[in-house]
């Protein structure tokens, strides 16, 4: 079976592991990266089918990761931004070009899975 590959770029280790666990049980293959720089390197090496991206990351932040993937790599792999609800993200949300979907932490796992599934389906249709 050719499982779909998901890259999680998240600096909070426990959150990354929890999401990884859940996604693996759903049959996805999961790779993780703990900062933006490593995230970009993993993206180039692994070519995942979808990226779960935190906004507030060390080294290179999520916003810039997103932009580099879209602008420098000319790549349209679905990106799901996972971020905490705060004043700043409120303002930035909607202006960050390139992400396909936004979800706030703490998230509902069911909803996260639904979004991932629908993003992957849309990507496959194209």
């Amino acid at each position: 079976m050719n499982a779909q590959k998901i890259l999680i770029i998240e600096d909070e280790f426990d959150i990354a592991q929890l999401i990884k666990h859940r996604l693996e049980l759903e049959g996805y293959r999961v790779i993780t990266a703990a900062d933006g720089e490593d995230g970009l390197a993993q993206f180039i090496k692994e070519r995942p089918d979808l990226i779960l991206l935190d906004l507030n990351l060390p080294k290179i932040n999520g916003y810039e990761v997103c932009r580099r993937i879209r602008r420098d790599q000319h790549d349209d792999t679905p990106i799901l931004m996972l971020t905490s609800k705060s004043e700043i993200t409120d303002r930035i949300i909607g202006r960050v070009k390139g992400a396909d979907c936004y979800m706030f932490k703490p998230f509902e796992a069911g909803q996260l899975l639904k979004e991932i599934k629908s993003l992957l389906e849309t990507a496959n249709d194209q």
Binding site: I15, K105, P106
Partner: peptide, 15 residues
């Protein structure tokens, strides 16, 4: 506080 709580809450909730 809201920002700092969001990660621990995420971890507890998901676990």
């Amino acid at each position: 506080v809201n920002h700092e709580l969001s990660n621990p809450l995420t971890i507890i909730k998901e676990s």
